[in-house]
Design a protein around this nucleic acid. Structure first.
Lengths: 159, 159
DNA sequence: TATTGTTATACTCTATAACTATA
DNA sequence: TATAGTTATAGAGTATAACAATA
């Protein structure tokens, strides 16, 4: 192994994250919903209704892409378009009941799967993962555009 | 803390991983290559030439999808189709020089970005992340099909 | 007949550019 | 003119079903 004395071995880090990423990507066989769609619903759930353009920025996609995504979400009763009182140009998107239920089911399924996988680890390995969660959460709090960490660790989408 | 009674809080775990996943998904602005494409190239690099159908299974996509992906990789000089000596039906896919170089550049860029992000953490947070890497690597070693952990922890390609 | 891969078709998801409606 | 959103168009990426070639 090449792991030696350096503080944080970049390649060990990046390789592990790559592999973890690939694993997480395969954990949703039953969910016929895209990553961006799930993330958008999550943003709507935690942060409440948002303008379509705000959602586009938050999810790191273009406005036309978000227009289409919202159209699909609306067609599937996962979200709703609402009018903005005071500005006729603005479209406000809000979570629909179907979206809330889908998030719940999806979260449940993924949690169950992760717990199952965690069960295959040794106790000290589990402890190491749990101990790293706060730091990983902070690490994950990078904004779409720039490379800085967000101020708060909470998943609340600020603004 | 949560390291006590019920061991691993499933929702803390799943939420953190979701957020980490979303972060990692946004770390490749310069790479105009899909996740599956990158993963396929990585598989070819670490495991050597493979049958097209083997690649499809390894990456968790259908055979037609892999056919198209390989066609794009070949068009972009990232991989090559070769004949199988002895079985005329089989297509063997191997990494091309362009693919090797792309992997290198991609790995470099992502490592640099992750190191940059790690630098924003406190020392003890960095330590917690590094301490969890072996366990995370094991966690990531889930096979495409079933839900079990692979026998060997380290896919250790590296360089 | 079984296996390996490709082609045909359709849908999601994304981007850029052009357009509409409102401010 | 500027802003918010949509439509038009193109391409990647995926799936299922039908097909061709080889074993």
């Amino acid at each position: 192994m090449t792991s030696g004395g350096t503080d944080s071995d970049p390649y060990l880090l990046v390789n592990t994250f790559e592999r973890l990423f690939a694993m997480l990507r395969r954990i949703h066989p039953d969910q016929h919903i895209s990553l961006t769609a799930a993330s958008t619903l999550h943003t709507l759930e935690t942060g409440g209704p948002r303008r379509l353009s705000e959602l586009a920025v938050a999810e790191g996609v273009t406005q036309p892409a978000m227009t289409q995504l919202v159209s699909r979400l609306e067609r599937d009763s996962l979200a709703q378009r609402c009018a903005h009182p005071g500005d006729g140009r603005v479209v406000v998107v809000r979570l629909a009941d179907g979206g809330r239920e889908l998030l719940r089911a999806r979260r449940e399924a993924r949690a169950a799967r992760l717990v199952e996988l965690m069960g295959a680890l040794a106790a000290d390995e589990r402890a190491a993962v749990m101990a790293a969660l706060p730091a990983l959460d902070r690490l994950a709090a990078v904004r779409a555009g720039d490379g800085r960490l967000a101020a708060a660790a909470s998943s609340a989408p600020d603004r």
